[in-house]
């Protein structure tokens, strides 16, 4: 936390190195979030790119009031939602997930590290986007329901419902997989 404050302080003074450190510190986590929300590595890279360029433009005026990680996670979630609105998510099948996150790609491309995560991403992609977002932000990135409610501009009760329904659907999907 203190390290982040120093990084932000130096970033606001125009330090490239501070910006680089912020990116390197959070890039994998943010990419993971963007992939979980979009089920598309290329799209996730675009989301993280846009978030950091936008963050860089705030140099000199950026005011960190809470956690930098939460702030950047919220930015990624917002950007991913915007991107998702203009994308057709119906083709986000397991095959598509395997294709976009294939391990055959070289080190110059981002990659999801394990099969279990790919399976989860595929399942999440079949949920309504708002439910997927709540589950990912809460369980993977530790955002509180209150913050997610603000992000989605709905009440906490609605967020809790979306979370519960989302988990129920995941359980049903897994149940279906087990039966088959």
């Amino acid at each position: 936390m203190l390290e982040d404050k120093i990084l932000v302080f130096r970033f606001n003074r125009g330090s490239r190195e501070a910006l680089r450190r912020i990116y390197e510190k959070y890039k994998d986590d943010l990419l993971g979030l963007a992939v979980a929300l979009s089920n598309d590595v290329s799209l996730a890279e675009d989301v993280v790119h846009d978030v950091f360029v936008s963050f860089a433009q705030s140099v000199g005026t950026f005011n960190l009031t809470g956690s930098l990680k939460s702030y950047l996670s919220t930015c990624v979630a917002n950007r991913a939602r915007d991107r998702n609105r203009s994308m057709n998510r119906t083709d986000s099948t397991l095959e598509a997930a395997d294709e976009t996150s294939s391990d055959v790609i070289g080190p110059e491309r981002s990659a999801i590290c394990n099969e279990e995560s790919k399976q989860l991403i595929n399942l999440l992609s079949k949920l309504p986007y708002d439910q997927c977002e709540v589950i990912v932000l809460h369980l993977h990135h530790g955002l509180k329901f209150r913050r997610i409610a603000k992000l989605q501009s709905v009440s906490i009760n609605t967020i809790q419902s979306r979370y519960r329904y989302g988990l129920d659907k995941l359980r049903c999907m897994l149940d279906g997989e087990v039966k088959t």
Partner: peptide
Amino acid sequence: RKPHVTAGADI
């Protein structure tokens, strides 16, 4: 099953 994504050199 939180995804662990390794950012590539391109990004």
